[in-house]
Each structure stands twice: as structure tokens, then as C-alpha cells.
Design a protein around this nucleic acid. Structure first.
Lengths: 103, 103
DNA sequence: TAAATTTGCAACCAATTAGTTGCACAACTT
DNA sequence: AAGTTGTGCAACTAATTGGTTGCAAATTTA
């Protein structure tokens, strides 16, 4: 059972769930209304997101609110850094080239 | 055959391949040396990365060099924006709180 | 207390995945 | 021309995935 953030965000439904609860914490039932699948399918996605700590839960009576764990999202950002470093370098090189051409 | 960047980067080997060719374009054989799998397995990963345009090829004699298509990586960054907006807001809120506490 | 609501979990299933081996083909080397 | 090297593709396989239905448990409502 591989369970890392990259595998978690590979699924479009899970990305949609993350985007939804990013706006506001939601219950599984409320989330399921946004999808064509069953509530149980959504529940399974939430389990995966919980396992890799992208979301946390908060019980409120018989309802369970799922919260986005924004800090965990930063891990993706951190992985992107190595590539961002490249495209920023290339951009500044292009920038340099352009200003050289101007002269 | 779902083929989007998020599914592509879900696999650790493919992330490693991306990181390697980010430094320098490489042939499948050269890449395969960095992995415990067969050359054909690496070739399959490269095919997936090519299909979603994360890499491009450049034939040179009988060798084929795989290049990172850095612009495509920006798509991940773009998706992250919506979340980055959140964590930056929270950070600035914390920032505000701290400066208020100082007073 | 009985019924309804909200949820998670298990069992099952079809499709997909990541790997393998075994080719075939083109391009260099001798 | 014959052998070697670099590569992609097809066929197969075991494991994983994302979905389903059918529960059971806990909490709220009547």
C-alpha cells in the first residue's frame, strides 16, 4: 500500500476533493454531492488523503468534517523547487538575451 | 489510458527520471543505469512521460536523447497556485498577529 | 424506545499499472 | 557483409486501483 502525496493527487477526484475542502471543511456526504460516484467511493478517497496526511478530521456529533492540511501541500511545492530553479534560470537567461539584443 | 502529468509524476521512478534529465538530457540506456529495473521498464516510463509531453526526444545517430520539457512542469505549479494562495494568506495572517502582539 | 441519519469498513470486481521476457529494426563498428 | 549496440514494441503477469454493494456502529430525531 504505497501512500504518498504524489500518488494521492494522481486521481482527479482526489484533486477535486482537495480543491473543495481548501475553500471550506466539509463532511463526506456534502462532498459526495459534488461527484457522480457513491458516498463510499468518496469515503475511500478521503481515507487515502487522510493516510498521507493531506487532510485531517474533526468529529462534530455524528458528522465528520474533513480539513485540508495545507502544510502537507507544501511538500509538492518543495519537490517542484528543483525544477523551478531551472525555469527561473532559463527565464533570466532569456531576459538577458533580450536586453542584449536591445543594445 | 489516462495520461496526465499528475498520474505521470505519481510514480517514484518517473520522478527520479525527471530529476535526472532536468540536470542533463540522457539516453534510455544511461538512465537505466540509475535503476534496478530493466532498460525496457525505463523505456516504458519514458513513453508515458513523452505521451504527456513532460519530455521530448532528439535522435542522434542510434541514440535518443530525452529532454525535460520544463514548461510542462509549470502546469503542476499552476495547479498549486490555488493552495499557495491559501498558505500565503495564512502566513501573512500569522505575520499580522505577531506584529499586533508585539505592540 | 424506535426510526432516521451519517459514517467507516469489508468483500468483491473490472480496469489499469509496473514490471518482465522476447523479439525486430536501425545504425554504427569491424 | 557480419557482428554489436541502442532502441521501441508486443505479450504476458502479479499487484494495485477505483469503483460497487451490503453491512454495522454511533448519533440525532420523533
Amino acid at each position: 500500500m504505497r501512500r504518498d502525496i504524489f500518488q494521492a493527487i494522481a486521481d482527479p477526484s482526489r484533486r477535486a476533493i482537495l480543491a473543495l475542502i481548501a475553500m471550506q471543511s466539509m463532511t463526506p456526504n456534502a462532498l459526495a454531492e459534488h461527484f457522480d460516484t457513491t458516498r463510499q467511493a468518496v469515503s475511500k478517497h478521503l481515507r487515502i488523503l487522510t493516510e498521507c496526511q493531506l487532510v485531517t478530521t474533526q468529529q462534530q456529533g455524528r458528522e465528520i468534517y474533513y480539513h485540508l492540511q495545507i502544510d502537507k501541500m507544501k511538500e509538492i511545492d518543495r519537490w517542484l523547487q528543483q525544477f523551478r530553479a531551472i525555469w527561473e534560470t532559463r527565464f533570466s537567461q532569456l531576459d538577458e538575451l533580450l536586453s542584449t539584443t536591445k543594445k
